[in-house]
Structures are given as C-alpha cells and as structure tokens.
Amino acid sequence: MLGVVIWTDADDSKAIIRCEDHGELAFLSQPAKVESGAEKLDQGDLIQFDLEEHRNLRMAHNPRKIEQQYCGDIKAVMESAVKVQAEAMPNLPPKNSKLLNFTRAKQRNTLGSVGSAA
C-alpha cells in the first residue's frame, strides 16, 4: 500500500498515514529502538508499507520511504480544510488552533494497547 504521512511523533516513532485507497487512516507504531538503517518519516513523505487490519484499525508495518516531502504542503492543505469546514458548518463548536491534538489521548494512554488482543 502507498500513503502520505500526515502526522508524526518522532519521540514515540509513531505516524498517521492517509492511504492510497482512500479508506480509513493507517497507524504506524515502530519499536522504540528502530534499526540503525531505518529512515525517519516526516509529515508529507510518500511511503510504501504493509497493511494489517485489527478489528476496525488499520496498522502499517515495514514502512519504506518512496519520496521525501512528496506532499510538502500537507499542513497548509489540512489548515485550509479546517477553514472550509468551519465556513460550511458554522454551527460546529470552535476547534482549538491545533489540527491534530493527541496530547490528551497520549496522557490517557488510550492508544497504548492498540492491537495487543487480535
């Protein structure tokens, strides 16, 4: 499967990927100690990966970078999408300035056991 990295957390070696099939997002969580030859993934990179589905989650494995900064303007695109949504649906509650705020989820450790019981 091919996909574009839309969010990364380098400290935890995690990423969220928009997949070529336009299905659900895929989640990547690599071991804390990745191999020395492993490439660092950044927002906007085009990658190829193996995909596994666990219940209703899509998990990416074995990522291989195809092109660095393939979609270098992904942050601007996402910010624009938020503005368009706010204009189209003015009755939605206002969002904070962060597009993807995973801090609360990380603090609650809600994603910590993803895929542990298949």
Score class of each variant (00 low, 15 high):
33 K>M: 01
19 C>H: 07
49 F>C: 01
8 T>W: 08
2 L>I: 06
10 A>F: 07
79 E>T: 07
72 G>K: 05
14 K>H: 03
22 H>L: 09
55 R>L: 15
87 E>P: 00
64 R>C: 07
74 I>V: 13
27 F>S: 09
39 E>V: 11
19 C>L: 08
72 G>R: 04
29 S>Y: 04
12 D>V: 10
76 A>Y: 08
5 V>F: 13
80 S>H: 14
61 H>C: 08
17 I>T: 04
26 A>L: 06
28 L>T: 07
101 N>G: 04
35 E>T: 09
118 A>Y: 05
41 L>C: 01
87 E>W: 00
87 E>V: 00
8 T>A: 10
57 L>Q: 11
57 L>F: 15
95 K>I: 07
8 T>Y: 09
15 A>L: 03
94 P>S: 00
33 K>T: 01
13 S>F: 15
81 A>G: 07
44 G>L: 05
101 N>I: 04
44 G>R: 02
111 L>Q: 06
21 D>I: 03
28 L>R: 05
77 V>S: 10
114 V>H: 05
62 N>Y: 08
106 K>Q: 10
36 S>P: 06
3 G>W: 11
74 I>M: 15
57 L>K: 14
37 G>P: 00
104 R>A: 07
29 S>P: 00
68 Q>L: 04
88 A>E: 15
26 A>V: 02
13 S>V: 10
97 S>E: 10
45 D>I: 06
2 L>N: 13
113 S>V: 04
115 G>S: 02
47 I>Q: 09
80 S>I: 00
1 M>Y: 12
32 A>C: 02
105 A>P: 08
56 N>K: 13
18 R>K: 11
27 F>V: 11
54 H>S: 09
59 M>S: 04
72 G>S: 12
81 A>R: 15
17 I>D: 02
18 R>D: 15
113 S>I: 01
60 A>Y: 06
12 D>L: 14
43 Q>N: 08
45 D>K: 10
100 L>P: 03
70 Y>D: 12
114 V>N: 03
98 K>T: 13
5 V>S: 09
107 Q>L: 15
86 A>D: 15
46 L>P: 00
92 L>E: 09
76 A>M: 10
61 H>R: 14
99 L>E: 06
117 A>M: 09
18 R>Y: 15
71 C>K: 10
11 D>N: 09
76 A>K: 11
6 I>A: 07
77 V>I: 13
53 E>W: 05
13 S>C: 12
39 E>N: 07
25 L>R: 05
31 P>N: 04
